[in-house]
Amino acid sequence: MTSTPAKTRLKTSAMIASFADPGQKTAPAPFGHALVAAAEQNPAIVGLTADLGKYTDMHIFAKAFPERFFQMGMAEQLLIGAATGMAQTGLVPFASTYSVFAARRAYDFLCLDAAEPNLNVNIVGGLPGLTTGYGPSHQATEDMAIFRGMPNLTIVDPCDSVDIEQAVPQLAASDGPTYLRLLRGNVPTVLDEYDYTFELGKAKVLRPGNDVVMVSSGLMTMRALSAAKELEKHNVDVSVVHTPTIKPFDAQTVLRELNTDRLALTLENHTVVGGLFETVASAMVQAGVSRQVLPVGLPDEFLHAGALPTLHDRYGLSVDRIVQKVLSAL
């Protein structure tokens, strides 16, 4: 029996690998530090988690404000119920768990306890989309599709540490419940190079381009920007429009960019069913914008387990696959 050469083996850690490229600037635990900063200004902010403080960067808050931190154990419905009760008393809860558990296990509690009375309950979901290789039990590939139909719920899909750091205080100050797709650990810092500021409910054109327009959210904005730089080598000029807020959706900005004759794509770390692609498509139909948009996203299926770099390439989320798709479509 022959063995795989050591240099080609991917360790188990590659299943939860960082999205930072080698040498890329990163910020450690931006959500945890942003929540601490917001809590220093607002004594009503409290933090809760369902036995996942370390894995959602909530442990940073717990260390800074132990008297305002609540460990609810592995009980996501209780987590949401407790957060709702706190919001009813005037507190501003941030409750963290994995996205799959928030969307699949605690939906009814979030919908009827928090969204229907429009309470300021902020759900922080770790491992959104294909950010783990542990298989369907932990891959929240349909979380935005599940949540988009919930009235009053704001959905934010941040690109990097800049988005997260700036989104947290705005979520705390907003009315009604919110859902933040969390990037945790050492999170890349990308948007500081594009004269960008996060505004809840707003899309931003990060770079102009005459040949192609990419509308993206989450970590796929990072990939869109990298693909745009690679495509310059092929004399392809790419515009990137970042849409960190999925709901409410900034259709005005996005449709203004799509209503041209450029090749158009959407890019998302989510199934093509019910996420950014269908949000854009719906907005186009309602506005009477008639043109083709190609989706870059995850397929409508349960995904394999494995190393993240391998999975991202297999399912078309890697920079190389994005570049190939654009070149083949031009």
Rank of each mutant, 00 (worst) to 15 (best):
M1R: 12
T2D: 14
T4D: 06
P5I: 02
S13G: 10
A17D: 14
A27D: 11
A29C: 03
A34W: 02
Q41D: 11
N42W: 04
P43L: 07
A44H: 13
G47R: 03
D51K: 00
Y55C: 11
T56C: 00
M58Y: 00
M58D: 02
H59P: 03
H59R: 09
F61A: 01
K63R: 08
A75I: 01
E76H: 02
A83L: 01
Q88F: 04
G90D: 12
V92C: 01
P93K: 04
Y98I: 15
Y98A: 14
Y98S: 12
F109Y: 12
E116L: 02
I123F: 00
G125V: 01
L127G: 02
L127K: 02
H138D: 04
Q139D: 11
D143S: 06
M144A: 13
A145E: 04
E165D: 01
Q166Y: 04
A167R: 05
Q170G: 11
G176R: 12
Y179K: 05
R181A: 14
N186S: 12
V187Y: 00
P188H: 05
L191K: 08
E193C: 06
T197R: 15
G201L: 01
G209D: 11
V212P: 11
V213Q: 13
S217F: 05
G218V: 06
M220T: 09
A224W: 01
L225E: 07
K229V: 10
E232L: 03
E232N: 04
V236L: 04
V241I: 09
V241D: 13
T243C: 09
T243Q: 09
A251I: 02
E257D: 03
L258G: 08
N259P: 09
D261Q: 03
G275E: 03
E278W: 07
E278A: 07
V285T: 11
A287S: 11
G288M: 07
Q292V: 05
P295S: 02
D300E: 15
E301R: 05
L303V: 10
H312I: 06
D313W: 01
G316T: 02
L317M: 05
V319M: 01
D320H: 05
I322Q: 09
V326T: 10
V326E: 13
